[in-house]
């Protein structure tokens, strides 16, 4: 899923300064699963903003609404009736949300309420970690099912580098060295020999480096 972090309240308050009617817009997709942008978080953020407004003696009009997804025009359409009623729409979906809302409702003032951080998964309740960099050419099966592009600080295809110590990355003892894990995993699987291969330079054309990406599926297009 796409994992995000709430923006600090101070930053959100600064964004919506002077805007009376505010809508906090949640999303039932990834951000609901990672507890940062679903219906519940809409309630919390809207309430916190109302407290701030009341405290400042301002009109506390902060409403909440949660769409099925904010990355799909079909659901963004549900805002059609109300978008014009608000002076600010705070989307707490991933970075796609505020853009889709702003594209569909050009007059609306749309603000991001969360920072989109990475594509990852939950290690346990309340802990998420990055797993994918969407490079556009998945190779994890060659590395024991672990991705060196997303999980090595240097995206080395021929690691581990000389900074790996006690199983951790040189950038921090909090960051495991994925190459250490790859070597251990491949060894356990009896496939260490495969790591003797020198991986040639990667084609980054399919990654963000090739420019913004778009995908067209002729079989689905209408």
């Amino acid at each position: 899923m796409i994992v995000g972090d709430s923006k600090p309240l101070e930053e959100i308050l600064e964004m919506i300064k002077g805007r009376d009617k505010v809508l906090v817009l949640g999303c039932r997709g990834c951000v609901t699963v990672c507890n940062v942008g679903g219906e519940k978080e809409v309630g919390i953020l809207a309430t916190a903003l109302r407290i701030a407004r009341k405290k400042a003696g301002q009109p506390p009009t902060v409403d909440g609404m949660t769409l099925e997804r904010q990355c799909d025009p079909e659901y963004i359409e549900e805002l059609a009736e109300v978008a014009g009623d608000y002076d600010a729409i705070i989307s707490i979906a991933c970075g796609v949300g505020p853009q889709f809302v702003a594209e569909r409702y050009p007059e609306a003032a749309v603000f991001p309420g969360i920072n989109t951080t990475f594509i990852g998964g939950a290690l346990e309740h309340g802990v998420w970690a990055e797993r994918c960099q969407s490079c556009g050419n998945c190779l994890v099966h060659n590395f024991g099912g672990l991705c060196p592009i997303a999980r090595c600080s240097k995206s080395l295809m021929n690691g581990p580098c000389g900074g790996s110590a006690k199983g951790n990355c040189e950038i921090s003892p909090e960051v495991p060295c994925v190459w250490h894990q790859i070597v251990e995993k491949m060894e356990k699987m009896g496939r260490l020999q495969e790591l003797e291969k020198v991986w040639p330079n990667k084609n980054w054309l399919t990654s963000r480096d090739g420019g913004p990406r778009k995908r067209v599926r002729e079989d689905l297009k209408q």
């Binding site: 519940k40 309630g43 919390i44 309430t47 916190a48 109302r50 407290i51 009341k54």
Partner: peptide
């Protein structure tokens, strides 16, 4: 719930 607690302050 966090929301209950915040509601009280609101």
């Amino acid at each position: 719930d966090i929301l209950h607690l915040l509601k009280a302050f609101e």
